[in-house]
Write a protein that binds this DNA or RNA. Structure first.
Lengths: 93, 93
DNA sequence: TGACAATATTCCAAAAGTGGAATATAATGT
DNA sequence: ACATTATATTCCACTTTTGGAATATTGTCA
């Protein structure tokens, strides 16, 4: 069913429709980071960062890797930053 | 301020985080359409379509052109469909 | 096993989004 | 001016999202 496709895509965009999650994406563009590094970088509570990361992961945008106590997250694609760059050129408001 | 940038981008993604609005974008990829054509194509009330179009326009994703009684909407960029295509390749869940 | 550090989960109130119904506005023709 | 058609706006109940606080889980080391 076609509407299911749109629902799925909408979820992906929803995952990106939050400034904290976008900032995480931006930070991860620099390379793999553990949760504690992200918490330190952004000014948010650890549980909130954790929830944000899980949302991004569920959307298929990032992946995680467990190393001892730490969990490292990294981008699965650079489409997002490319998309933002493309949009930037077009925007004029 | 940097957080303002993320807020602005988040609004853009928020505009795309809805199946109806994505379907509109998809339909407009085919070329300029007036509101009545979009209402006819999608199965939603005219006021809802109208609100969706305004949201997409405010996000800078589409533009409008008034011709008599009709208002024609068209894409300002094809970044969105390109982004979706890119994401499709990566997704594996 | 027990203490500790890193990350995840649950709970919750406030804020924002959703989409239908009714209504308003704007442009056209008679 | 009036009727008509296309589009926009307002109102509202409902659902979802947001982000902090408290708590749970998981892995490590002594």
């Amino acid at each position: 069913m076609k509407s299911e496709i749109y629902n799925k895509k909408a979820k992906l965009f929803k995952a990106l429709s939050n400034p904290v999650r976008l900032e995480i994406i931006d930070f991860l563009a620099d390379g793999e980071k553990c949760v504690c590094e992200i918490v330190e970088k952004l000014n948010y509570e650890q549980p909130h960062i954790s929830k944000s990361l899980i949302k991004l992961k569920e959307a298929g945008l990032i992946q995680d890797k467990k190393v001892g106590l730490n969990v490292y997250y990294s981008l699965k694609t650079h489409c997002v930053s490319e998309f933002i760059r493309c949009i930037d050129v077009v925007e004029n408001n």
